[in-house]
């Protein structure tokens, strides 16, 4: 009874001090004197507590672990403090290329370009620079083209924990269904 809340607070302290998203495994490893199932339970309690209470910060699961973040509504003040006008977003070409890599990986540049019907060499270069995709080898086919995959950073950027959390077929189908009904206004 009195054990559980204590454990919850310990976990909170660990997440607070961790420099990177802290995984459940790592928490369990640190708190090896507690049964793993109890640690997991306490973690869930902590998440519920932070989610339901007000305040400037909260805990999210991202990049395979738990991490403290500011709540989205405080974005304007955080940016004012950090002197950042706005975070730059990905261009639509980048986003398109990135989703193709995400869903079709491993994939080559010519395959990407074929799917988009647009030469994508420049876009893939920017994505490489942003470390959102990486080269993982060469395909055993004529010309031995490079093979691209998404990175851990890609997951963290979109707040995903694994590729399984990419939008599913159902979510996509839903969007497509909505789109068809929304397209009412004709262009002049």
């Amino acid at each position: 009874m009195t054990m559980a809340p204590e454990l919850r607070d310990i976990i909170e302290a660990l997440i607070f001090i961790s420099l990177e998203p802290l995984s459940l495994e790592k928490i369990q490893e640190t708190l090896s004197d507690y049964p793993p199932s109890e640690v997991e339970k306490a973690l869930n309690e902590l998440l519920q507590k932070t989610a339901s209470s007000a305040g400037g910060i909260t805990i999210i699961q991202s990049g395979g672990g738990y991490v403290f973040t500011t709540r989205p509504e405080f974005d304007p003040w955080v940016r004012r403090f950090l002197k950042i006008d706005r975070k730059s977003k990905l261009s639509s070409a980048s986003l398109e290329t990135l989703s193709i890599v995400a869903y079709h990986q491993p994939i080559t540049l010519s395959e990407i370009s074929a799917l988009r019907n647009v030469d994508s060499s420049y876009t893939i270069k920017t994505l490489l620079e942003k470390k959102l995709v990486k080269i993982t080898g060469r395909k055993k086919s004529p010309g031995n083209p490079l093979i691209y995959r998404t990175t851990e950073r890609f997951l963290a950027y979109f707040g995903l924990n694994s590729l399984d959390e990419l939008p599913t077929e159902e979510e996509i189908a839903k969007i497509l269904g909505e789109d068809q009904t929304v397209e009412q206004a004709p262009k002049p």
Partner: peptide, 24 residues
């Protein structure tokens, strides 16, 4: 296929928006 990608993009774009407002 392209239509699907576009739809996925719109979902990812929302996620991007959400994530950009969170500061760690």
């Amino acid at each position: 296929e392209y239509q699907k990608i576009k739809a996925a993009c719109s979902i990812l774009k929302e996620r991007e928006e959400e994530q950009l407002a969170l500061w760690t």
